[in-house]
Design a protein around this nucleic acid. Sequence first.
DNA 1: GCTTGAGGTTCACGTTACGTCAACGTATAT
DNA 2: ATATACGTTGACGTAACGTGAACCTCAAGC
Lengths: 277, 277
Amino acid sequence: MFTVGDFARLAQVSKRLLRYYDEIDLFKPNRIEPSSGYRFYSAEQMADFNRILALKELGLSLDQIRQALNDHISTDELQGMMLLKKAEIEQQLRGEIQRIRKIESRLQLIRDDESGKSPNVIVKHIPDQHVLSMRRNVDDFEAGMVLYAHLQSTLPRRLRDGFFFCICHSDYDTETNLDLEMGVIVSKPADSSLMLSDGTTLTLNELTGTTTMATTVVQGALETIHLGYASITKWIDTNGYRLAGVPRELLLQFPKTPSGNDLVTEIQFPVEAIPNW
Amino acid sequence: MFTVGDFARLAQVSKRLLRYYDEIDLFKPNRIEPSSGYRFYSAEQMADFNRILALKELGLSLDQIRQALNDHISTDELQGMMLLKKAEIEQQLRGEIQRIRKIESRLQLIRDDESGKSPNVIVKHIPDQHVLSMRRNVDDFEAGMVLYAHLQSTLPRRLRDGFFFCICHSDYDTETNLDLEMGVIVSKPADSSLMLSDGTTLTLNELTGTTTMATTVVQGALETIHLGYASITKWIDTNGYRLAGVPRELLLQFPKTPSGNDLVTEIQFPVEAIPNW
DNA sequence: GCTTGAGGTTCACGTTACGTCAACGTATAT
DNA sequence: ATATACGTTGACGTAACGTGAACCTCAAGC
């Protein structure tokens, strides 16, 4: 018979651990002296205790270990549990590897970008959304901003609950004669089209959520947004994704100043993970 | 200005998370309405919040993130933190791989061994110990047991605080004419030698702790102990260790029955990890 | 004006596997 | 008789939130 202290020394664990295992009904002392409450462990119990430690080292939780010991589990079931655990660890392992890659790419980004103000890319899942939108050819992005302002001032108030968005259907490198789709996200689609006071017609469309979106938020006007596009494409490249649709912008905050420095935009790139990257 | 709910939806996190980050001074709303306590976030804050999320995804703790943001950390320092984190993950990764190997070897063991009663091997670190011991040639292991009993009965009581141990210096396959060292572990070495009442002389020696020991506890007499040796050597083989000294046995419990079925022994194999296994 | 529902708030507890006091009872050695 | 070494229970802390209760506020519909 050993006291907790002796047993703990032998097994090289803390006394507190033994009491804890007693408390959670995982491993109880052979005998408890009723008068003093002292715990006494038998030498035979060392083998059982080592079994617990061994299972713990394999990564099983104490709950699982208790079940494995209590329920007189069959070898098959135990095997199943361990296979499961193995798969779990492998999964986690893949995650860790990805994290390392991300860190590496991020480090590279830091080295590249001395300003230290690079935007932060976050992957989100975005559902399908209904929009009222129109499509126009405009000369440049400045004209796009004017369109935004126009939309905002002429759109009926009841449709202003959603954000404005913009999709550039022309090629990236085009800087003139842009094919823009602009509009507003509506939560409950009521009308299939809508004529504004100035004769402009918006039609009901659907923005299919490609579900997986690489997004970033930039604050500032045209130039900053360009930077945002640049760094998000780079991020996509170095993080095992590829483009899977046409990007869009969400206008989180309308500019109140002419310079547009307080403009806040969320850029969303539909992406898909490259398998086995 | 967004309410928590709106901001949470946009950022695709829970409201609770935002309140929590407020509480721990990690990310506070732009404005809090004094009358109602309502939190209001500005669109500009979305970029900051995404930075936090991005850092979190890289595996930094919230504490680290807060420091990184508060202390106006330099790129160099941030790089240092991330390199550190990377090393940490790589370390952990190696650990996970080892765990998978262990699980695999354990699964193999389960498949091999239908009894399900295989001993459980635990790695311990054991310091140097002083012993009073004698060395004898005996015919077989039965004779060893007799020696144990003899020692126990003749040893002065004051030296009985430590466990008895036994080291077999002859080859494993030898079953006759065994070269055994037996004795008792003493906590405070007093005499350099000791003569028992029957004329036997024990001398003070040192059991150098090879520190790393693969150990297992078996209950039963000779045959069970043999099984223990077998499975521990197998375990060493399949878990990336190699033998690094001569094994020893610790007598956790003296047998009270002639059969010796209640004998409890801890077998200890000094081992070292195989590098890059 | 009242209710309703959707939002908001704080407070407190649950999670995992223990470590760390604190206050107090017990066994042993001098 | 007492010092001290060891035992007991109990409560709180950990990381990063999730969950639920109890209660307050706001805008809209009747």
